[in-house]
């Protein structure tokens, strides 16, 4: 029998926080993936909401491109507030 598909599990720990990746599991369908995720990752009330996503549906950036892919952000220091000179005496800026 072929192996059950792999699902990535994301849990929202508390209201106000984003869902965070916590791990993965195998399940035959989404409903069982959700129930298994509940039993596996929230036995101690670690979450208030769970997402399960088929691992095959995720497109990831490649670590081989770690330089070329993220480099365009490196030469735009003006995107950070620390780039700007603040004249003496100005308040609330």
């Amino acid at each position: 029998m072929p192996e059950w598909p792999l699902w990535e599990v994301f849990v929202r720990p508390r209201r106000g926080l984003s869902h965070t990746h916590v791990g993965s599991l195998h399940a035959p369908d989404a409903a069982l993936a959700l129930r298994n995720a509940r039993d596996l990752f929230t036995r101690r009330q670690e979450g208030v909401s769970i997402w399960v996503v088929p691992a095959a549906a995720i497109t990831a950036s490649s670590p081989d491109e770690k330089d070329s892919f993220f480099d365009p952000a490196a030469d735009k220091v003006y995107r950070h507030p620390t780039f700007y000179e603040v004249p003496d005496g100005v308040q609330h800026l």
Partner: peptide
Amino acid sequence: REAAAAYA
């Protein structure tokens, strides 16, 4: 396992 896969 077989029943769950068949249901899915």
